[in-house]
């Protein structure tokens, strides 16, 4: 886990109380590339992909 160190602003006046989030748009389309099949993080990635698992399913 990473600790962030900076000051965040306050909600704008237009923000309604009780509102949790507003999604504006998705991320840009990713570029398809090959990850190098080495190292333990890759093996974990491969395991998730092979089992069709999400990160949280993988945690269990």
């Amino acid at each position: 886990m990473s600790q962030t160190q900076f000051v965040l602003s306050v909600p704008p006046p237009s923000w309604t109380d009780g509102e949790e989030f507003r999604i504006h748009c998705g991320i840009s389309d990713g570029l398809i590339r090959n990850v190098e099949p080495v190292g333990s993080q890759f093996l974990a990635h491969a395991r998730r992909k092979l089992n069709n698992h999400s990160f949280s399913e993988d945690d269990r």
Partner: peptide, 22 residues
Amino acid sequence: DSINTSITSTPHLLKSIGIVND
């Protein structure tokens, strides 16, 4: 199975994702 291209070929973020400070 792991070193198969169906596993290695994967989308990569085109642009960084982050937040904006004050």
